[in-house]
Design a binder for these strands. Structure first.
Lengths: 158, 158
DNA sequence: GCTGAAACCGATAGGAA
DNA sequence: TTCCTATCGGTTTCAGC
């Protein structure tokens, strides 16, 4: 880690990435600080960009959005143009929650969320398969979420 | 969608899943409501579990945690016991951000975040490969994040 | 149901140790 | 640095529409 964060800062980040609705007082007591210095540190972490934003995590199941698909994509023409077009187009699609370029045999890995499998099918046909330069699409459909967090492993021991 | 959410509720959810640090007044004005009813709706959405929690999203890169790996796993013994052991063990590992059971040829898909590829290698050897009943591990390493959001596609048109 | 206002409580900043 | 305190603003409630 090329970062210069104190142990206290790390504690604060750990708390906030598991619950950002804590009051300053509660957070302070959990990290063993009093309010003011704690609040100051939080602000610094915000300013310096360690904390990107605070969001609400919704219950996908209750909202009827519980189909998760990991979708690997290969493009046919590997020219620059084609890649950027694809990336821009994909970033616009709300169903695409995540998209990464990959090493190995696949060009992109997409995590897609839709209402049900029919919708996924329709989504692929209507949007994904229409995109510029697509050669192969491979869909891996998730059944049950065993774990699903947004918290980074700050307490890793490796 | 088997849910009975009004258009206003959906607007509220959309706002909060992109920014949960909005004040009640600001949120109210964005969804075209005044504070009180807006606040009431937010509370109801919390109580009913549509909003699960509010978290801080951290800057993985600044924290030196920018290796993302999608890892598919197959277990050897497909008895109940083996599955639950694996799931419980995996849920404990902070490096495992997400874990899903899958249809198709792989048993599990894991999304893993570590500091660098060396750490990933070490993580796989130390923890993953030691787990009960593992047969195959296939690691797909992400290079660049094109898109990475936690927002569900509430405005999907399909 | 929504609006507006009032009361309360927590967040913020400044000053003292 | 941290702690303490005062002020300010947001949240929450309640009465009226």
């Amino acid at each position: 880690m090329q970062t210069n964060l104190s142990a206290t800062d790390l504690k604060i980040l750990k708390q906030l990435q598991s619950d950002a609705s804590l009051t300053a007082a509660e957070l302070a007591s959990r990290v063993g600080l009093s309010q003011s210095p704690c609040w100051r540190r939080v602000n610094k972490l915000l300013e310096e960009g360690y904390i990107q934003k605070r969001v609400a995590l919704l219950n996908a199941e209750k909202l009827g959005m519980d189909v998760v698909v990991f979708c690997s994509v290969n493009l046919s023409a590997h020219g620059r143009q084609s890649l950027e077009e694809f990336e821009q187009a994909v970033a616009q699609l709300p169903e695409v929650i995540e998209c990464y370029t990959m090493t190995g045999t696949m060009d992109y890995m997409l995590k897609i969320v839709t209402r049900d499998i029919r919708h996924y099918e329709k989504f692929v046909r209507t949007f994904l398969a229409q995109m510029p330069g697509i050669q192969e699409i491979h869909s891996n459909i998730a059944v049950t979420a065993i774990k699903n967090t947004t918290a980074l492993p700050l307490d890793t021991q490796l």
